[in-house]
Design a protein around this nucleic acid. Structure first.
Lengths: 110, 110
DNA sequence: TCGTTAGTTCAAAAATAACGAACTATTGAA
DNA sequence: TTCAATAGTTCGTTATTTTTGAACTAACGA
């Protein structure tokens, strides 16, 4: 039985959030979850199709333990939601600021 | 003769900046440089005194190559300045947002 | 010139991340 | 109920990144 570890709002740290977002793949995951604004399964939010399941699972665990997403089991899949309110309460504007730049599709040289 | 690699303003990438700032030590370095608002030698900006010189040097190289700091040789030491204008031009508000939260000394459980 | 200081480079050790294989849990169909 | 399929996790190994100490360079001062 899988137990998900979710930090409480106050246990969300800046370094944890930054570390979680410093990975291009995780940045994309969060970005797609933000634009979706609803639950997404791990596979739905996968940043690229050819990523190993275990790697993807690990990325979600890191995002989860950093407090960026909330995961709960729903049937055969896991529903992930971005913890936008908690992060906003903890670090107002941070997510919007970071992901806002991420929205520019490409910047100069690819 | 040491040649420093500094990306031009437009070559500064979000992921590079986030990756550079995702390390607690580098975050502290940048933080102290921001509060100082002037040149700092590597040793002056060292986040902890017991860090190996090579590690410190490596952190500065990462910050430099991410475009966060500018380094130039001045006598026996290296003067590092934060490239605040370039980062602001590239990602307005990012640095202030991120480092602003970093200013809270400690948050809940240490 | 010699010693000291500040920082870099290199190669090896330590820590992290990615992967494939095996596993668990749920669903749906026979 | 049993069997196959699906969605993720966990584990152990490999690959990549970080940290470190040792040796080096460059600038300064006595």
């Amino acid at each position: 039985m899988v137990q998900f570890v979710h930090p409480s709002r106050d246990d969300i740290t800046l370094e944890g959030v930054l570390a979680a977002l410093s990975d291009p793949m995780r940045l994309r995951i969060v970005k797609s979850m933000l634009s979706q604004q609803g639950c997404m399964s791990c596979t739905e939010a996968a940043p690229c199709p050819d990523m190993a399941k275990s790697t993807l699972s690990n990325h979600f665990r890191i995002l989860r333990e950093a407090g960026l997403i909330h995961t709960e089991k729903k049937g055969v899949e896991h529903r992930n939601v971005i913890r936008q309110d908690d992060i906003e309460a903890r670090f107002p504007g941070l997510l919007k600021t970071i992901l806002g730049f991420c929205d520019e599709p490409r910047q100069g040289k690819a």
